[in-house]
Design a protein around this nucleic acid. Sequence first.
DNA 1: ACCTGAACACCGTTCAAGT
DNA 2: ACCTGAACACCGTTCAAGT
Lengths: 269, 269
Amino acid sequence: MATRTRRSQRRTDALSRERIVEAAVELLDTAGESGLTFRALTERLATGPGAIYWHVANKDELLAAATDAVVTAAVTVGSAAGAPQSPSDRSDGPHESDGPGESGTPASPQDGIRVVALGLFDAIVRHPWLATQLATQLSRSPWGTVTPRIFESIGQRVRALDVPESSWFTVTSALVHYVLGAAGQNAVNGAIGRALPPGVDRAGFLDSVSTAWEELDPDEFPFTRAVADQVRGHDDREQFLDGIDLVLAGITATHNRQDGPDSTPRAQE
Amino acid sequence: MATRTRRSQRRTDALSRERIVEAAVELLDTAGESGLTFRALTERLATGPGAIYWHVANKDELLAAATDAVVTAAVTVGSAAGAPQSPSDRSDGPHESDGPGESGTPASPQDGIRVVALGLFDAIVRHPWLATQLATQLSRSPWGTVTPRIFESIGQRVRALDVPESSWFTVTSALVHYVLGAAGQNAVNGAIGRALPPGVDRAGFLDSVSTAWEELDPDEFPFTRAVADQVRGHDDREQFLDGIDLVLAGITATHNRQDGPDSTPRAQE
DNA sequence: ACCTGAACACCGTTCAAGT
DNA sequence: ACCTGAACACCGTTCAAGT
């Protein structure tokens, strides 16, 4: 169901780091984290393991490169077309393109943050292995390229908010942390339809979670049982944006109480 | 440097799922994620792989059990002593005990949230493998025990806030997402002193990150370069709590504008 | 400089056999 | 019911050899 282009019979045209990373991403998307092996990779690229090791140091580096490629595409605004125009026009389900373009309307900083955040959110839904990889990559080496890239794309919008410079780091960190936490947890949604038995769709899935929560021990889990029903009909992207808005509201409440026309609230339907 | 108790020469006293999970956690803490193998486990427990498989279905289940054990300890408030009394008395470095006890003062809901959040934060710093495992566990199966446990402990405090019941799920989710994202990214700190060459301490580590950020491409990373210096001296726990406060401020700003004496702001030094 | 592919060490898991 | 340990299939990685 993924890409139909390019099959295995292409021994011609030279191997390259780029092609290897591309194949790795496809393999991860198709077969999941455990599906990325050097044997599967050699087969798909019609070569031997030694050839891959000539271009890539080891599996960790390959995973880092795959993560970086996908994150860069997701976070680079203003490139591709056909992406979410504005976070106000809510549409269900993940989008198709890999980069959110800011076609047209010069958005407010808040909307810019929402667009970037949604771009990452959708990328993780499309590539569920990103959730784990991001956690690995970010916690292992903040000196890598992935962390600064995410940080930069959010931070540039924070700078446009009227937050004192001394708070830039803290505010941007808070936003990035929320986005990564939320997107990570919602990686399940990408796995629905892939891993789940066909016939069980998203509604059925939410229903099963809701039911499972309702059957928890009443003494240990009173709150979780109480909200179990709210799980049933909720929209993940909607909830994700509500969380962003909560943080944005906190930022304006904290940093410019007396001042300006605080924030541009999203259109509420 | 971890536990000095119990060595390998204890063939007596029966094997049990509990002892296996305990050994797994120790192995993960000591040798990292790649250090947990069935061979290392059999050696430590002085047994064969078959014995372990009698108590545990496979490695995934073992990892899930280890995660659940640590998270439960971290999130269960009111058990152990010697834990962070109140998030206001800031102390540097991770705490020793595994559960944050709420000894004494009946805290505000806000403080309760801060205590639980810090408990999770510290647990991830102490057990860096938790970051990856949490991402794996949560995104794979919200019907597991780990998600509800975290959700419940935060949610019970949210209920004590005066947030309309219809927003309980969204608000709690936002908090949980922030906590997991922030704690996950800060798992590095647990690795400092373990993985890093001795002689490079925390200050040196932050310094190296800051320097790396300062050397990024000025065209691609203007913002990241601008805040690079703020990285140098910052306190992770402090910044983590500042983020929590941002979300809490957003919650009160959004949900009870006209009403009560909005939130109890932390003492700012 | 780039690629081949056999070989190595190690891993998770199974299972007939013991008690 | 619980444990033993040899065996199996598979994995990441290496390296002498080719072009």
